[in-house]
Nucleic acid binder design. Structure first.
Length: 188
DNA sequence: TAAGAGATACTCT
DNA sequence: GAGTATCTCTTAA
């Protein structure tokens, strides 16, 4: 089952938590790459100083103000893409969930080639790594992920225990425990 | 195993 | 012109 728009049209933090254990599907060059989501982070709007949408709408972050279930891919640190999904309730102006980690399932050989690495445990365990492993670039920005296309998310496993903590790599909003993750070793 | 620094280009002010 | 929702390598212990 592909996750519907109604799944994403809820409180950003709720969506971030429930995306853990879901399966991301990337169709590229006639093959499918899939992975279980192991880590996410929630980013909101004015109440969240760490969010791109904290100040105002700009060219880069405008999709965060748009339709839930749409991909938000952006470039950072001069060499990495980050994959997010717009998620917000009708009461929120903006919000998105950052996908920080995946545990690979299908298409392992392609991911190894993309990353030049054979360690399955490390191949997509960070936001910059997973976009390289799955071949995600600016081309995948602003795409509807509730439809079967080159990139979407479907139902996966039920995680037993989700850990939460402060978000990673930011300098503001450290008081908010909006990072959610599971340990793949507990499941596979 | 941990800590530190460099790479690199895009976006916003 | 400054800062960045990161990763990898090197060095040292």
């Amino acid at each position: 089952m592909i996750l519907k728009k109604s799944f994403y049209e809820r409180e950003t933090i709720t969506v971030a938590k429930e995306l853990i254990g879901k399966i991301i599907v990337r169709r590229i060059q006639g093959q499918e790459l899939t992975g279980i989501i192991t880590e996410t982070e929630a980013y909101r709007e004015k109440d969240d100083p760490a969010s791109h949408a904290a100040v105002k709408m700009t060219n880069r972050n405008k999709v965060m103000f748009g339709n839930p279930g749409v991909s938000y891919v952006y470039f950072t640190y001069g060499m990495y893409f980050m994959l997010n999904i717009v998620a917000k309730s009708k009461k929120q102006n903006a919000g998105a969930v950052l996908i920080r980690g995946l545990y690979p399932q299908e298409g392992l050989s392609t991911m190894m080639k993309n990353r030049g690495l054979e360690n399955i445990d490390r191949i997509s365990d960070g936001p910059g790594k997973l976009t390289i492993a799955f071949g995600i670039t600016k081309e995948e920005h602003n795409k509807d992920m509730t439809r079967k296309s080159s990139l979407y998310i479907k139902d996966g496993i039920k995680p037993k225990k989700i850990k939460s903590g402060p978000r990673v790599g930011i300098s503001k909003g450290l008081d908010k425990k909006w990072n959610f993750r599971i340990n793949p070793k507990d499941y596979f």
